[in-house]
């Protein structure tokens, strides 16, 4: 039988309903955030196999029960890899059920983490994650160590307070800044403001998070709205990877701020409080730093900038961040925040 490979578009109801049925029959839900979906159709234009991409991840794979063993997955994966290549993405990841992970092993993907024995996460480099950890290992220091992970969008007094608290309690603090450029403040600026904001703390080491910590690969729902169960699964996967990183650096605690407003960060904190102790890592939740009875949050800072009240962020951010936002360099970033309809993290 010959099959035709075709893109499945959201505006084609017949193909979309076939897509839902096929995924459902394999016990898979269609992710709400996808960039591209393709399918193989038989001569009567029935969908027999499908796969999708989001960012650098390949996901939502299914092959119809009647057509398994025909090598259809290979054709889908080849096509998706070519698609990703054309988008300039070489380093790819796969989300799949652990029971199907072995098929991806045959296609040049290597497992890096597992969640609850059901979800597997793979990448197309044999030693990608191992090399990432190896490079981090040179920053391991004797004594106690804690980790802080932040997006710092942008860096506020709240972030600074959190890092200062961690730095006073531990010999070394490993500070990871999210490298994903999905936030209103671009990574280069966030990175610079974090470094300036912790310059007075000699025992803080800044790291770029790479694709392995809260990235669009491990934790897509951090950046794009999704359902609670999806967020929880992503959070668990993210922590599985964090466990390995923590081991590499001798990290015994992760320091996080209380989350009063954001749904996704709140859930992430809940999952951390439950999962980290299982990995032998302490989860320290610190109360948020306040200014005039109001908690300092980057969402508030973005809201103020959005409303054109840039001067009013002064009491909420360190001098270095304020200096940046009042400099001419910040014009494009301020424009981006002012033109955005969604400035508060969901």
């Amino acid at each position: 039988m010959s099959y035709t490979l075709s893109e499945i578009r959201r505006d084609n109801p017949r193909e979309c309903s076939q897509l839902h049925d096929l995924l459902h029959s394999q016990g898979i839900a269609l992710d709400s955030n996808l960039d591209y979906t393709c399918g193989l159709f038989d001569e009567d234009w029935n969908l027999v196999a499908t796969g999708s991409t989001f960012g650098a991840t390949l996901r939502c794979f299914a092959v119809s029960k009647d057509h398994q063993g025909e090598g259809l997955l290979n054709e889908i994966v080849s096509h998706l890899m070519e698609y990703e290549m054309n988008q300039g993405r070489v380093h790819l990841f796969v989300y799949t059920k652990t029971s199907s992970a072995k098929f991806f092993g045959d296609l040049g993907f290597f497992p890096i983490a597992q969640v609850d024995g059901t979800l597997s996460f793979l990448e197309n480099r044999p030693r990608g994650f191992a090399q990432f950890c190896q490079q981090l290992a040179q920053y391991r220091r004797p004594g106690t160590a804690a980790a802080v992970v932040m997006n710092a969008n942008p860096f506020t007094l709240g972030h600074q307070f959190l890092v200062e608290q961690a730095a006073s309690q531990f010999d070394t603090v490993h500070l990871f800044v999210l490298e994903e450029d999905a936030s209103l403040v671009p990574f280069a600026v966030r990175w610079q403001l974090v470094q300036e904001g912790v310059a007075h703390l000699p025992n803080v080491i800044c790291h770029k998070s790479g694709p392995y910590l809260i990235s669009s690969a491990t934790f897509p729902s951090y950046f794009l709205k999704d359902e609670t169960t999806v967020i929880e699964t992503h959070a668990k996967l993210d922590l599985a990877l964090f466990g390995t990183i923590a081991q590499t650096l001798g990290i015994s605690a992760r320091v996080v701020g209380e989350e009063p407003s954001s749904v996704v960060t709140g859930l992430y904190n809940q999952v951390m409080a439950q999962k980290l102790p299982e990995l032998g890592i302490q989860c320290l939740v610190l109360p948020r730093c306040t200014q005039h009875g109001q908690v300092v949050s980057a969402s508030t800072v973005r809201s103020l900038i959005h409303q054109g009240r840039v001067e009013e962020i002064c009491p909420l951010v360190p001098q270095s961040t304020y200096a940046y936002f009042t400099s001419p360099d910040a014009a494009p970033v301020i424009a981006a925040i002012q033109n955005s309809s969604q400035v508060v993290h969901y």
Binding site: G71, N74, E75, S78, M81, M85, V90, G108
Partner: peptide
């Protein structure tokens, strides 16, 4: 970076 080939039987994918 560049790629050629597929993952189908009797082929090879080269990156």
């Amino acid at each position: 970076p560049a790629m050629a080939g597929t993952l189908e039987s009797s082929d090879a994918q080269v990156t």
